[in-house]
Amino acid sequence: MANKPLTMLQIRRILKLFMEECSIREFHRQTGIHRVTLKNYLHRFRASGKSFVELADLSDHDLAQMVHPSRNTKAPDERFEDQEGRLKGYAKKLASKRNKYLTKQVLWEEYLKECPNGYHYSQFCHYLEQHLQRNDLTMVVPYHEPGNRLQIDFAGEPLWIVTPRTSERIACPVIVCTLPCSSFFYAEPLASARQEHLIPALNRALVYLGGVPRNVLSDNMAQSVTGKAAFFQVSMNL
């Protein structure tokens, strides 16, 4: 329907594409949103007197009040305002390479220590995700056709096995196989990253996933590349 209100994520996507000077026709082709709806929101953006960049910097509550002034949008409670002030710091922590083991669960537990009456985990993640998307307007989410591609690679850090008798620590590289359309994945720690352990693990991954994709993307894994004759010319060994 042409007059159906859009979600906040859709509104922010409209802002992003208008900032890139995308036409109404092209936007309609990409998203299927009715042209009349797009024109209505464009009129509201311009009537606000703010630039697209300024609108994109607004919080979800302020932006909703701007484009839907007639709707009874509830004022944010103290928890919302408190978390809004913390989101920038949380985003920096997640982006920092020094915090490679940091997760949203750890951030949420840290948040609850400072705000015992704060949001539950799901709501905390919801606002954090909105902040990350709002401040990364150049992010492009590619379309993945179902069943077309399986992405495989080793995880950044190995798991460790400790032998009971000698207490020796043995590193176990972890292979991860992901279907990007659904984010369905298979992960398995291996005795080593050599082919004699990698190939059987890939077979088990296909059995677990229940099918064989058209393509397998391995990100130039050393186990699958035997040599490079020239730039962009490689010999595969799988």
Score class of each variant (00 low, 15 high):
Met1Leu: 10
Ala2Glu: 15
Asn3Cys: 12
Asn3Val: 13
Lys4Glu: 15
Pro5Gln: 05
Leu6Met: 03
Thr7Val: 07
Met8Cys: 03
Gln10Val: 11
Ile14Ala: 03
Leu15Trp: 01
Lys16Ile: 05
Lys16Gly: 02
Phe18Leu: 06
Met19Phe: 09
Glu20Asp: 08
Glu20Trp: 05
Gln30Ser: 10
Thr31Glu: 12
Arg35Trp: 00
Val36Ser: 08
Leu38Arg: 00
Leu38Ala: 06
Leu38Glu: 01
Lys39Cys: 06
Arg44Glu: 10
Phe45Asn: 02
Ala47Ile: 08
Ser48Ile: 07
Ser48Asp: 01
Ser48Gln: 02
Ser51Lys: 07
Ser51Thr: 12
Phe52Val: 00
Val53Gln: 13
Glu54Val: 03
Leu55Met: 10
Ser59Asn: 02
Asp62Met: 03
Gln65Lys: 13
His68Asp: 11
Pro69Tyr: 06
Asn72Val: 06
Ala75Met: 11
Pro76Cys: 02
Asp77Glu: 06
Glu78Ala: 14
Arg79Asn: 04
Arg79Ile: 00
Phe80Thr: 13
Glu81Lys: 08
Glu81Asn: 10
Asp82Lys: 10
Gln83His: 02
Arg86Val: 09
Leu87Asp: 02
Gly89Trp: 10
Lys92Tyr: 00
Ser96Leu: 03
Ser96Phe: 05
Lys97Thr: 15
Lys97His: 14
Lys97Gln: 15
Asn99Phe: 14
Gln105Ser: 15
Gln105Phe: 14
Trp108Ile: 09
Glu109Ile: 01
Glu110Thr: 05
Pro116Gly: 13
Tyr119Pro: 03
Tyr119Lys: 01
Tyr121His: 09
Gln123Gly: 01
Gln123Leu: 11
Tyr127Pro: 01
Tyr127Met: 05
Leu128Tyr: 05
Glu129Lys: 14
Arg134Gln: 08
Leu137Asn: 11
Thr138Gln: 13
Val141Tyr: 11
Tyr143Leu: 13
Tyr143Cys: 11
His144Trp: 15
Pro146Lys: 10
Asn148Gly: 11
Asn148Leu: 13
Arg149His: 03
Leu150Tyr: 07
Leu150Ser: 02
Leu150Lys: 05
Gln151Met: 13
Gln151Phe: 09
Asp153Ile: 15
Phe154Gly: 00
Pro158Tyr: 07
Leu159Met: 14
Pro164Tyr: 13
Arg165Asp: 12
Ser167Asp: 12
Ser167Arg: 14
Glu168Phe: 00
Ile170Tyr: 09
Ala171Thr: 01
Cys172Glu: 08
Pro173Ala: 02
Ile175Ser: 04
Ile175Val: 14
Leu179His: 01
Pro180Ser: 04
Cys181Gln: 14
Ser183Cys: 13
Phe184Ile: 15
Phe184Arg: 15
Ala187Val: 05
Gln195Lys: 15
Glu196Thr: 07
Glu196Pro: 00
His197Gln: 07
His197Ala: 04
Arg204Thr: 13
Leu206Pro: 04
Leu206Arg: 11
Tyr208Pro: 03
Tyr208Phe: 11
Gly210Glu: 05
Val212Gly: 01
Asn215Trp: 15
Asn215Phe: 15
Val216Glu: 04
Leu217Glu: 12
Ser218Gln: 10
Ser224Cys: 14
Ser224His: 14
Ser224Asp: 12
Lys228Val: 04
Ala229Phe: 11
Ala229Thr: 12
Ala230Glu: 13
Val234Tyr: 06
